[in-house]
Amino acid sequence: MTSFQPLHSVTSQSLTGKLQGFHEALLADYPHICRLACAIYDKPTDVLKTFINSTRQGHAIAGYEVKLHDTPSLLHLANHQQSRVIDDISAEIHGGSVHSDWLLEQGYMSSFTVPIIRQNQFLGFVFIDSVEKDSFTPSIQRDLIMRCASICDAIANELAAAHLLVATASAIRSIANLRDFETGMHLTRMAELSKLIARNLPAHFGLSDEDIEHIYLFSPLHDIGKIGIPDAILLKAGRLTDSERQIMQTHVQKGVDMIDSILADFNLIEANDARIMRNIIAFHHEYLDGSGYPFGLKGEQVPIEARIVTVADIFDALTHKRPYKKSWSVENSLTELHQMVEQGKIDDDCVTALANSLNAAQHIVTTYCDSQEPASNPGY
């Protein structure tokens, strides 16, 4: 059996690290700039969400999302590809929303907002804050726009690479004549549930918005290796025999091999987001007591991103109909997850994060419900 091991360390500098380095260099000329942050835009959902930041004063806002069309001032900047200066935040910004209340609490005095536009597509914003009023003169604005181009390029390139990986894996799945092994709604639920759990984990896990975005993007690829499993097993209407289960379990290594090949082809094997993708695919069937497969990892050997996806995947399987079972209620499914925690199989913090977001979990289950459930056998 392969000795593939979890990739806990970052193999290349993260975007957060790059932004912090950019901020450090900027301080030599502009010591009053106390914060740089980037929010990225998801066009299908119209959601603008926090992504990376470098904060020298105050505390960073994290896990924040807002509909772009609910923020007319930012929508105008995005539509017209314009920057914006606020010379006196305390005079021009009024409380009443989560973001404006947070901004006023930090003591920032002025700000400069720059849209990220690549190939005429709006990708998000860079927010630059200062501890002084009237910090952003026209000449400073021009200089900052030029200097921000490098970090905007890095953000655009990494997002493009991540979406390319997802699109490539999805295309492979589509052309493999897999029919109903996974529905689009299952994949959407996996992304939403994984993000929900990740956002509600305790702070000691140290998941940044950048990490959470990658978990959100890559969690639907967890079972990509199933494209190499024969339909007679993959689509079997009933529980698998022992020999069939052994074949089913090979989908993990098949998925790892497939993704490694894709990463190598795109020269992305050392990319930071590749670590999260590979860990999700390789370890989402591991149990904390060592009884999972294919590597029999225990406890902290299982990366947190894999533990998150494991809980999301089991919860989704429980709450939706399968050929051999009816769908369970959210409450009964959570009871089953808690029992698995007591057995030492899955992560208590991940299950607690899901349980503490019961209404949101129910919303995901009901909103993204399949009209016809997938025939795939999960192979647990």
Rank of each mutant, 00 (worst) to 15 (best):
F4N: 06
F4G: 04
Q5Y: 03
S9E: 07
V10A: 15
V10Y: 11
S12E: 15
S12W: 11
Q13F: 02
G17L: 01
L19G: 04
A25M: 12
L26T: 10
L27E: 08
P31D: 09
I33G: 04
L36N: 08
C38R: 00
I40A: 05
Y41A: 09
K43G: 01
K43H: 10
T45V: 06
L48Y: 08
L48A: 01
N53G: 09
S54T: 09
R56P: 00
H59T: 14
I61Y: 08
E65T: 10
D70Q: 12
P72N: 03
P72S: 07
S73F: 08
L77A: 03
N79L: 05
H80F: 09
Q81N: 11
Q82D: 07
S83M: 00
S83I: 00
I86G: 06
D87W: 00
G95E: 08
D101A: 10
W102V: 04
L103Q: 09
L104W: 00
M109P: 10
T113C: 02
V114Y: 13
V114G: 14
F122Y: 14
V126Y: 12
V126H: 14
S130V: 06
V131N: 05
E132P: 00
S135Q: 12
P138S: 12
R142N: 09
D143A: 11
I145P: 05
I145V: 13
R147Y: 02
C152R: 04
C152G: 02
A154W: 02
V166M: 12
A167G: 04
A169Q: 14
S170F: 07
N177K: 15
R179M: 06
D180E: 09
G184A: 11
H186Y: 13
H186C: 02
T188W: 07
M190Y: 02
A191T: 09
A191N: 14
L193G: 05
I197A: 06
H204Y: 14
I212M: 06
H222C: 08
K226A: 02
I227K: 04
G228T: 06
I229T: 10
I229A: 02
A232F: 08
L235N: 11
G238S: 13
G238L: 12
L240H: 00
L240A: 02
H251T: 14
V252W: 03
K254L: 15
M258C: 11
I259K: 07
L263S: 12
E270P: 00
A271I: 01
I280P: 13
A282G: 15
F283C: 14
H284Y: 05
E286G: 11
Y287Q: 15
P294S: 14
G299W: 03
I304R: 04
I304C: 12
I308P: 04
D313V: 05
D316W: 13
A317P: 05
Y324M: 12
M340Q: 11
V341I: 01
Q343R: 11
G344V: 03
D349G: 02
L358Q: 15
H363I: 09
T366V: 01
T367F: 06
T367C: 11
T367H: 10
D370F: 01
Y380I: 07
